[in-house]
């Protein structure tokens, strides 16, 4: 744990604070949410790492998608993701968000979440145990340290691409684009 290394704090306090204060929005899409209560309560106690659940995406910086993503819930996922303030990190939890898992051939399941929103890390398993969650968090720390957890930057840069993917799935979206989308670039895609 480098929480006690003062030199790192002085160099980049914002980044360090992000690492040790994950306020998490859990998107309880499927069975994955079952593993969250043990990890935040007495047995494993995520709060010792500064991880606490919050109610709204506005206050959060970590987005945890726990379980399979259906076409309908994806809409809410995108919206929630867009409402989170930057910097923000996304972690997909379990096998289903990676490739659809056991629902890989369902007509209604999104098999690759990464097409619609940027995902910074995956925790594989069906289900991953709380220990796996913590290992995932420590990996995320490393990624933040190396500036590789840059999903929110990718989302901003490639917004046209993401929005096009989203619109391909849903047609006209309910809300205006988060970032300005120029017509010309859209035509090129």
């Amino acid at each position: 744990m480098d929480r006690n290394q003062i030199s790192k704090w002085l160099k980049n306090p914002g980044k360090m604070a992000h690492k040790y204060s994950f306020h998490v929005v859990y998107f309880c899409t499927g069975c994955g949410i079952i593993e969250i209560p043990p990890s935040i309560t007495t047995r494993w106690d995520a709060e010792r790492f500064g991880i606490i659940p919050v109610a709204t995406p506005r206050q959060a910086n970590l987005f945890l998608i726990t379980g399979y993503v259906s076409t309908k819930t994806l809409k809410a996922i995108i919206r929630t993701y867009e409402q989170m303030p930057e910097p923000k990190y996304t972690v997909a939890f379990g096998s289903c968000p990676i490739n659809g898992g056991m629902y890989y051939d369902s007509y209604n399941t999104i098999t690759s979440l990464d097409k619609y929103i940027p995902v910074d890390g995956y925790i594989a398993g069906c289900m991953p145990r709380p220990e796996a969650v913590f290992i995932g968090v420590t990996h995320l720390w490393k990624l933040i340290d190396m500036d590789k957890a840059d999903g929110y930057k990718r989302y901003r840069e490639d917004y046209v691409h993401y929005r096009a993917n989203q619109e391909q799935l849903y047609g006209q979206m309910d809300w205006p684009p988060l970032f300005p989308v120029e017509k010309k670039e859209q035509a090129n895609l």
Binding site: P13, G14, K15, M16, A17, H18, Y20, S21, H23, G50, R58, Q59, N61, Q83, P85, E86, P87
Partner: peptide, 15 residues
């Protein structure tokens, strides 16, 4: 921990 939380919140882009 609240100091860390406040620092994190300040470093985020608000709406």
């Amino acid at each position: 921990q609240p100091f860390i939380d406040v620092m994190r919140a300040f470093s985020q882009k608000s709406i």
